Amino acid sequence: MPSGQQARAQAAAITPGTHGSEAEAEQAPPVDQVRALFGGHRLSPGQRRIAQFLIDHLTEAAFLSITELAERVGVSQPSVTRFASSLGFSGYPALRDALQPIALSAIAGSPEGREARRRNELQAAVDAEIENLASLRRSLASTDQILDIGRELARSAPLTVLGLRISASLAEYFAYAARRIHPDVRVVTRGGSVAYDALLQSREAGGTWVLAFAMPRHSKETLAAMKAARGAGLRIALITDLALGPLVHEADVSFTAGTGSRLVFDSYSAPGVLSAAILQAMADADPERTQVRLEKYEQASDQYDFFLED
Rank of each mutant, 00 (worst) to 15 (best):
F255S: 08
R42I: 01
L308P: 00
S90A: 15
V80G: 01
T81Q: 11
V253Q: 13
A251W: 02
G207C: 04
A125M: 08
R48N: 13
M215N: 00
S219D: 07
I14T: 14
Q33I: 06
G17M: 07
T189L: 05
G207T: 05
E121Y: 07
V264H: 04
S301L: 13
V188Q: 03
T143P: 06
L64G: 08
G231F: 05
P30C: 07
H19K: 12
E115L: 12
A276D: 07
L247D: 02
A36I: 00
D184V: 03
D241M: 01
S139K: 11
R293A: 06
D310K: 08
L104A: 13
P45H: 03
I236Q: 03
M1K: 04
R72V: 04
A125F: 04
Q5G: 05
S202F: 10
W209G: 00
A70K: 07
I236W: 01
P29N: 08
A116Q: 14
P287C: 06
R180H: 14
V188P: 01
I130Y: 01
A281W: 00
R118I: 11
R119V: 12
V75R: 12
V126Q: 08
T240S: 15
R119L: 13
T18C: 10
R138H: 13
R186N: 14
E26L: 14
D97W: 00
A243E: 15
R119H: 11
S90N: 12
K296V: 08
N132C: 11
G113M: 03
T160P: 07
V253L: 12
G150F: 01
Y304M: 03
A23D: 10
V188H: 04
R190M: 12
R155G: 12
R96D: 02
L238F: 03
D144A: 15
T240N: 08
R35A: 09
L274G: 06
S86Y: 06
A177G: 02
E71H: 12
V31H: 06
R151I: 13
H57Q: 13
S86A: 15
L87V: 06
F89V: 06
L104Q: 13
A225D: 02
A228Q: 03
T256K: 14
Q10S: 09
L308M: 08
Q145K: 15
D284N: 08
P101L: 06
Q201D: 15
P216V: 03
L159F: 06
S167M: 07
D310E: 10
Y173H: 10
E250A: 13
S105A: 15
A195R: 08
E295L: 09
P271Q: 05
A214L: 01
Q47N: 09
S267A: 11
Q5M: 07
G272S: 14
I102K: 01
S21G: 01
D32G: 02
P2S: 11
P183E: 06
R190G: 07
A195E: 07
S301I: 10
I149Y: 09
E204H: 10
E221K: 10
P183N: 05
K220A: 11
Y196E: 15
T189R: 08
Q303T: 09
Y92H: 02
A177W: 04
L87W: 02
S219G: 05
A11L: 10
S193E: 15
S3I: 03
R48A: 07
G40V: 01
